[in-house]
Amino acid sequence: MTQDKNPYTELERLLAERVAAQYGRGATIANLTRLSGGASRETWSFDVLWNGVPLPLILKRDPIKYEADGTIAIDAKDDLSIGVDRLTEGRLIEAAHAAGVPVPEIAFYLEESSLTSAGFVMQRLEGEVLGRRVLRDECLAGARTKLAFQCGEAAGRLHGVSPSGFRTLERMTVLDQISHYRSQLDAVDHPYPGFEYGLRWLEENAEQAGDNMSIVHGDFRLGNLVVDESGLRGVLDFELAHLGNPISDLGWICVRSWRYGQIDKTVGGFGELEELLDGYEAATGTRVAEEAVKYWEIFGALRWGMMCINMAFSHLSGPHPSLEKAVIGRRSAETEYDLLTLIN
């Protein structure tokens, strides 16, 4: 048996057992396919066939490697593998669902064992995820006109979820994050004066950030949003969720890198800031100050720049070097330029 074939047959057997337990004997699985993208996690698509009706599902689990003897090992972590564990991610999605955020429904969980890493299985939503297509597909023209409002509403509902059931979430104030980025710059040991200036500015102007704390999504942007003709169909990828300033989610979706070339539309390349804030107000009763979103957009530019810098050094000294990381590494100049343009 080749090493390539192992993960597939092992996973298929495991899922077939779990599906039979979940949906009853006679439920089988079909069309198991590894999806590309999402370098830090494995995602698989498959269908459950039960009483002749296909149920489309997605498995998301931590990456694993098969050893030569057929046993599995949790894949080597590099510095980019941060964020919440899969059980917490699934429970966050369930809590978001209960709060009225459009998200996939969770079907069941996989616990870490000698057969698999930890993961969860969720509904596979129909719709477009790729940012460029969401912004350009003719069929989505109507959806784009309401998307900014819907995103504001979804973010507002998520921010209303009580954090009391999520005690393992990391809590980060804006000053914690600034100090975290400074240690990252120290760790890479290469001078980035533009980013140092940005961090200094963010620190000096931290009062603009606002001081609420809530559960935040942490990566709320095109690419993690499923869009169909009715608009926002689902929010995906809660890996970077944490306890932090809720407005950070609103600033992040405005960062130029997530406008996919449509830079004149502030919100994700599809909407105006006012629409986002209208939706947020409809869900929360609170009108967020534009100045605060601005602050978090600058913060977001710096944050994406830090992610690029971390990619560069993960390529240079991490366990998984790649051309893509190397080239994304040089994209830090884009956000450095944006952030210095936006700072007064």
């Binding site: 004066p193 533009g194 200036y197 100049a333 884009e334 450095e336 330029y337 210095l340 343009t341």
Partner: peptide, 9 residues
Amino acid sequence: LRQTAEEKL
């Protein structure tokens, strides 16, 4: 800083 960022870009 702005000029440097622009030149890098």
